[in-house]
Write a protein that binds this DNA or RNA. Structure first.
Lengths: 145, 145
DNA sequence: TACATTTCCTACTGAAATACTAAGATTAGT
DNA sequence: ACTAATCTTAGTATTTCAGTAGGAAATGTA
């Protein structure tokens, strides 16, 4: 159904929280879990991939926590979502041509490639900084919780 | 994982076959199944939604089969994929806001909306006629099966 | 050193979606 | 009647998803 999994969705919310605390020192996962209403246990699964590609760094032990490893302006939504979802290709044959013998003559595959590229482009064009800006604009227009 | 299901993929291949036989009279599902190497049993599941939105018409009984209900130029990939996948929204809350209480203040949702719109746009911009053209171009460059 | 706090890692599990298959009912032409 | 086709419903095996659980490793503090 072409739906983002919870990994991609929760992951961007997690990253937005980290972005909002950039330069405030490490943030506890526990706190993010509380604010975002997601279990810490599940959030823990999202960190390894984000660390692996250098978006997040962690400090273990007491007074530890997680920090953005780069400024919010340098982290795009594509970075986040791709690392957590594994791939943004709408079809497997774009990542692994060997899965299908029709690859060369398949025209629908060409369309899926266009689709993938437009997904890339859309998500690349938005950074965590953009989200923060959006957040601020939004809350200034909200007169209710 | 944001992957198209086989419904969307097989469905576009099915529709391309119908498009290539537009104005040749009804096509047997059996024949399409053979060409595309998909079981007729499974293809049968894809027809009801396509008929429901008026993309395909069927003739039952002997000498029956399926026909495109509109010219290939008037059927976009969005029509096909959306009808078969059910929705093209990367997140459920775009279709059904009531599933999440954070809808109003959620900035990531705004990004998913952008993403959905770019998916719409990409798929709307391609019609079955475009696929046929692409197919022709492609086969003229292929010197092997 | 002992302890508390935190990240890190692995295994497991229930639920849902996916990708089919099967079998017959219905319709239409010959 | 008979044959050829679509139509419809039910069932099932497999995979993916979402989440829990439990403990190991690291780090600061008393």
């Amino acid at each position: 159904m072409m739906r983002l999994s919870t990994r991609g969705r929760y992951g961007t919310r997690l990253m937005l929280q980290l972005a909002q605390n950039y330069k405030n020192g490490p943030v506890l996962l526990k706190d993010i879990a509380l604010k975002e209403d997601i279990s810490t246990g599940y959030l823990e699964h999202l960190l390894p991939p984000l660390k692996a590609i250098g978006l997040v760094s962690a400090t273990r032990g007491a007074h530890g926590g997680y920090t953005l490893a780069k400024p919010p302006s340098e982290i795009s939504l594509r970075d986040i979502v791709q690392s957590l979802e594994g791939s943004l290709s709408p079809v497997e044959c774009l990542d692994t041509p060997s899965v299908c013998s029709r690859v060369q003559r398949c025209v629908s595959r060409d369309i899926w490639k266009l689709l993938r590229d437009s997904i890339y482009q859309t998500l690349e064009s938005k950074t965590l900084e953009d989200l923060i800006t959006l957040q601020k604009e939004k809350s200034s227009h909200m007169y209710y919780i």
